[in-house]
Each structure stands twice: as C-alpha cells, then as structure tokens.
C-alpha cells in the first residue's frame, strides 16, 4: 500500500477541528494555547453546542482567542472574565458560558472575580492556563511563578522573601462550596491531550447540571518567556511545574459526594 492509497478522504482519522477558524494563530511556536483552543473547539462541536456557547476571553496572550474558535465571544477587561460570565449565565441560563484565562489574568488581577464566582457557584466553565509567567507583556513574574524561576521582573529567580510564594489557585478554590469540578491537566503529550479533552468535556457537561463552577487548569509552557525550545519547555514543565502543580482531579462533587 503506498502513501497515495492511504491518504484518501475516507481514511482521515484526525484533522483540524471544524470550529477552529482559518485565522493563523498569533501564538509562538509550540505554545500550549493552540492545543487548548483546539480541545475546546472539539468539545463544543462534539456536544453540538456551538449555537449556545458564549466564550469570554481575557487580557493576556489569549486576548485574541475570539479570532480562533467559531463561536460568539466577549472580550473582558483584565481579570474580569468571571464577572462577565456570571451575568451572562444568569441572564441567559440556557447558554454554555466559559471563560478562558491565563495566570496573570485569573490569579493576579482577577482573584476577587474568580474567587467570588467560585463561591457563588456560578454554573460556568473556567479554563485556566497556568504557565507561571506573563507571556504577552514580555515574560514578567506571575503569581504562579515557581520559586527560583527567572523572569524579566525576577531576573535572579523568584525569591519568596521579596516576591512571596506561588499561588496554587485550584487547591484554594476547592475549599469553596460553589465549585463542582476542579481538575489540573496538561497538553504536552498525546495521552495528556486526550485526558485534558475529557476534562474539558466533563466541565461543560457539569455546567449543564447547575451544580456549580467547573474549573480546568492546564499546566502549560511559555517557551518564549521561559527562553527554551518548545520541546525543552515541555520537559522543564514536567520536571518542575508538575511538582508544584500536580496533574489530576482535585474535586468532583458527583464522585466525591459523601455517603449520607
């Protein structure tokens, strides 16, 4: 069997998702954003909810997420996406509403908004991209930057005496009664991508059940900010980021429900 015989339309097993637009992504080569966008697009397509999904993009590298997934979008002010999502979901309860936020947006300037959206149990999905750095503004320290990690505002490495400690947001919000599903995933290998997709699908399904907020953290790379090749950044993430931000489910109210 030669290549031409294999490459027939009926043999396609994977292709660009239908809801990913033809716009060329502005992200750096190897950036995790593109993979996560793809997974969200696939989940929305597979669930058949394009016409009822409203995405809310943040300020940060993914500010232009609205250019890449073919759904209605709102572009929020820095950190405020959960506030927009709150009103959108409450005013349009039949819609699927998700925010897409980076660590600067969600864990720094937007802490009040995310904590209170979690606390109120808004029936929304939050996709949280945690790469421990500000990408768009040129690689400054984020709340999630690891101790010792060099950034443009911690050029000698993050020193807790000066800069404090990394914030572990997913664990923090797991203590809030309004959260239904909290998981931490990554997208650096094919297996990880499959698991992350299942997690995103579950989050969207949970948002239909009106049981509270679903939160999917994706531990990600920023190879430009980290000053590594994309492949090395993935390795560094596994060796360093995963120690502070271990992969796996943190809370699932439907699974963890205590026996009454």
């Amino acid at each position: 069997m030669d290549t031409a015989e294999i490459m027939r339309p009926e043999n396609i097993v994977y292709r660009k998702p239908a809801l990913i637009t033809d716009n060329v992504m502005h992200y750096c080569p190897g950036c995790s954003h593109g993979v996560v966008h793809k997974l969200i697009a696939e989940v929305i397509d597979e669930m058949g909810i394009q016409d009822s999904t409203i995405g809310i993009s943040p300020v940060g590298c993914s500010v232009f997420a609205y250019n890449y997934i073919d759904i209605d979008w709102q572009e929020a002010a820095h950190g405020r996406a959960p506030a927009l999502a709150t009103a959108t979901k409450r005013l349009c309860p039949d819609k699927h509403v998700f925010t897409y936020q980076g660590d600067g947006d969600l864990a720094s300037i937007g802490t009040a908004e995310i904590i209170h959206a979690c606390s109120r149990g808004e029936n929304i999905v939050v996709i949280f991209i945690n790469n421990g750095i500000y990408g768009m503004t040129g690689g400054q320290m984020a709340p999630t930057t690891l101790i010792g990690m060099k950034t443009s505002t911690t050029p000698y490495g993050r020193d807790p005496k000066i800069n404090g400690f990394p914030m572990v947001i997913a664990d923090m919000i797991s203590h809030l009664d309004g959260t239904a599903y909290i998981t931490r995933q990554s997208v650096h290998t094919a297996a990880a991508v499959r698991k992350a997709k299942s997690a995103i699908r579950k989050a969207f399904e949970y948002s239909e059940k009106n049981i509270g907020l679903s939160f999917v953290e994706i531990v990600s790379t920023c190879n430009s900010g980290w000053k590594m090749s994309p492949v090395d950044a993935n390795k560094w993430m596994v060796e360093n980021m995963f120690k502070k931000y271990p992969i796996g489910d943190i809370k699932d109210v439907l699974k963890d429900a205590p026996a009454l």
């Binding site: 294999i6 490459m7 043999n11 660009k16 995790s32 954003h33 993979v35």
Partner: peptide
C-alpha cells in the same frame, strides 16, 4: 496513523490518515 503528532500540534496543521492492514 496514531495521531499523536496532530493531537499535540498547537496550530492544527496536521491531518492524519490511517488504514488497517
């Protein structure tokens, strides 16, 4: 045709074909 390459591709530039033999 396992699709691993396409799954991790951030820019969705890979289409995968697979046949049983």
């Amino acid at each position: 045709g396992c699709s691993a390459c396409a799954l991790v591709c951030p820019d969705s530039v890979i289409t995968v074909y697979r046949v049983k033999i």
